[in-house]
Amino acid sequence: MKRDAFSQYHPAVNFVFFVGAIGFGVVIQHPAYAAAGCVSAALYYLLLRGRSAWKLILSMLPLAALLTLINPLFNTSGEHILFRVFGRPYTLEALYYGMAIAAIFVVMMLWFGCYNAVLTSDKFTGLFGNLIPALSLLLVMVLRMIPNFFRKMKQIIGARRSIGKGAEKSGSTKEKIGQGMTVLSALTDWALEGSVVTADSMRARGYGTARRTSFQIYRMTLRDWVLLALMVFLAAGVIVAGGVRAEFTPILSIAPLTWGFAAYCVFLSIPTALHIKEALQWRISISKI
């Protein structure tokens, strides 16, 4: 992943942005808002992931088309009947509605893609470590164990293969399942015996005697507060301005755009703008040398 300016802000700021972007994204079915969401989420996702972003973005297209075409099969209300499927009307309004829902779905998936890149697991546990100490510790342990167990599993499979009990591609399904179960069983044994040592070590080092500290220290600085205030202000603007109502069926009625739409666009483009601003500054400072 490339260096991203928005990711350098406090995790709480990142989290609030994604709650806002995804929350507004799934609730507002106004086509202009959905389109703005699609564009800004795709843009930010491209900046975050570079060329590999196209894989997710392009895989969304057939899914969106499918969602659009399926909707009129179930939602049959609407004035303009295009044709009939098994005697049920297939209406233009429902098709538009399907498009809006497909756009909302794409917005949601793309924002979640950005979320995965920005709010990494250490930020999540850093953010919620004080609120849910036991659960976030549990999560940190599991996140550490998963790669560790993958390695252990590879060792077990390797050892079994060297004595001629490998799960080769040629065996029957029954054999393969049996092999997999044996590997899992061995892994459980190994991991659980090890866990006793971990737990005793935790006790010896004073687990539970004091508040847990986290590895990464995040502090809200002035620029975090400023950005947070701006985001809350814009989000409040979207809510106060209204004009997000859009009904598709039975009659198409879409509210005219208000200044709330401008606030929404500015809100959504915050991370992209920060990313581009920093990239430009970097370019300029390099060219000065």
Binding site: L187, T188, S195, A199
Partner: peptide, 20 residues
């Protein structure tokens, strides 16, 4: 500690189990 670690181990095994 022991309860925490045991739950963590079982959750991690469940998460990697697909790979077997």
């Amino acid at each position: 500690a022991r309860e925490l670690v045991t739950i963590a181990v079982m959750a991690a095994i469940a998460a990697v189990s697909r790979a077997a």
